[in-house]
Amino acid sequence: MWQWFHKLGSPRWFYDISGKFLPWLALASVVLIVTGVVWGLAFAPQDARQGNSFRIIYIHVPASFLALAGYYVMAAAGAVGMIWKMKLADMVMIAAAPLGAALTFIALFTGAIWGKPTWGTYWIWDARITSMLVLLFLYIGIIALSRSFSTRETSARACAILALVGTVNIPIIYKSVDWWYTLHQPATIKLTGAPSMHPDMFKPLLVMILGFYCFYALVLLLNTRTEILQRERRTNWVKELAAGK
């Protein structure tokens, strides 16, 4: 077990092994996402009240899921990197930050598009949207911090600390925003309640969520591999790789 753990910490080993996973992950995400999109957009029934506009949830919900999960992935990688001084974990953390920020932005953006036909406005200070916006700020903070240090090691340590502090604060932030929302606006409109959905609507959503998870893993791997090549560019194995061996 321990040996395996240390092996995993070697960027080169990770680069080799992740290269074997990549095609499968790519295949899985393409199949799942194409299935989900076609099923969700063309075959799922219309919503009784919202008509076709509800179909944006097939992007909005998976993106929102992963936006939050991505923060935990980043923080967990940061913690591993900090505790076991594992370079690879640092690289995963740095790779996860822009990806999570992009997903958070997609969630916010699709939410805004969805808001126009349902609430009549692009932006509404709804609890979910507000939490998502705060999450975006948390991500941007990490990205800005990671770009500010002169060395990668320091940068990774600093980001890990910030991500961990953010992680323990996220539940408090979410709870307080929820509470704030109920205070100002008794919950009259509730649209994203997944459990109340018709099964025919829900099944494609499930496929999309799975597809997004695969896609997330795929992009995270790709980002990490880029980070590995950049960091290890002076080592022999990367030079050999670059020489086209």
């Binding site: 705060v134 999450l135 700020f137 948390l138 941007i140 903070g141 800005a144 911090l145 500010s148 910030l162 502090v165 953010g166 604060n169 408090i172 932030i173 709870k175 307080s176 925003v177 509470w179 704030w180």
Partner: peptide, 16 residues
Amino acid sequence: LLSLLVMPLYVPVLIF
């Protein structure tokens, strides 16, 4: 940068 880092953490306090 400092404001960006800590502002999200201040949200609950502001609300309460």
